[in-house]
């Protein structure tokens, strides 16, 4: 099974969001779609899911075989979890569906199956959305920013869940978080200027000799202090208090960075580690 899209274009007024985009995805792949906010990720996913129609071009997959969960994860809050899933089943009458009991167990909803959706935490609501997506046993699963708003434990559980259902399916998920794509996907696509700018298998995407730390502070710091840390290769700054630090792969420098920040009487707003090439793709 292959999901393909040819010459997909989509504009909103004079704003060209997708420009003659071509895409081909194969069974068993977990594909990450990266791009800045407004790059057209959601537009592309909606077109692949058959929700929106492209101005030109076509996709090859039957809409009945696609499961789609949007970024907003819309649910009927007054419904009970099991009632909602039963309702989805009655709406979608395609063959080879999973049973409601199967998806409840698969995504770990047993303890909340009798609760109202409005009473659920964000994590459980995401699971309900995924359960509804899985119900028709789709060949293609499309997830738009699926981990938005989840805490680290929920993210880890969600990753394991996605990996467990990936076999024999095409899973395509969008995110602006590179570490998420890195942790979950086999292949990464970078969407820029309406086209797929990069298309790489993730094991080849990483430059094994170095990695990147993205550091955001509450105020600027003297870059020479960070450069003095052993293992730091280079530092880039975008003029604000955000720094992209290239580090030799065998070095762990985060405790040194932390010490310097504390000594400089500054605060860390964000610090995360990504592979070198994935960061370069994105910047």
């Amino acid at each position: 099974m292959i999901l393909s899209a040819q010459d997909i274009s989509k504009s909103y007024g004079s704003n060209v969001v997708l420009d003659e985009l071509d895409l081909s995805l194969e069974q068993g792949e977990i594909v990450g779609l990266l791009g800045r906010n407004g790059a057209g990720k959601s537009t592309l996913l909606k077109i692949l899911a058959g929700i929106n129609i492209p101005d030109t071009g076509a996709t090859s997959i039957d809409g009945d075989r696609v499961g789609y969960m949007s970024e907003r994860n819309p649910l009927y809050p007054h419904m009970y979890v099991r009632e909602y899933l039963d309702w989805i089943t009655s709406i979608r009458s395609s063959s080879s569906e999973h049973t409601v009991d199967w998806v409840i167990e698969k995504v770990g909803l047993q303890e909340v199956a009798g609760k109202k959706i409005s009473q659920l935490s964000k994590g459980f609501r995401q699971r309900v959305g995924l359960a509804a997506t899985l119900l028709p046993n789709p060949d293609v699963i499309i997830l738009d920013e699926p981990i938005n708003g989840l805490d680290p434990i929920q993210i880890e559980q969600y990753r394991n869940l996605i990996k467990s259902i990936a076999k024999d399916k095409i899973i395509i998920l969008s995110s602006h978080l590179m570490q998420e794509i890195e942790a979950l996907c086999d292949r990464v696509l970078l969407l820029q200027d309406g086209k797929i700018k990069e298309d790489r298998l993730l094991q080849n995407a990483s430059d094994q000799s170095k990695y990147i730390i993205t550091l955001t502070l509450n105020n600027s710091i003297d870059e020479s202090l960070l450069k003095s840390i052993e293992g730091v290769i280079d530092i880039m700054s975008n003029g604000t208090a955000q720094y992209i630090i290239q580090v030799e792969s065998e070095r762990e420098v985060r405790t040194d960075i932390f010490d310097i920040i504390v000594q400089s009487d500054l605060k860390i707003l964000d610090m995360h580690k990504t592979s070198s090439s994935l960061q370069q793709m994105f910047t």
């Binding site: 058959g50 789609y68 949007s70 907003r72 819309p74 649910l75 009927y76 809050p77 989805i88 979608r92």
Partner: peptide
């Protein structure tokens, strides 16, 4: 309000 028009569309309703 709940964004469920998108859900209905994705369910091919």
């Amino acid at each position: 309000r709940f964004g469920t028009e998108e859900l209905l569309r994705s369910l091919q309703v």
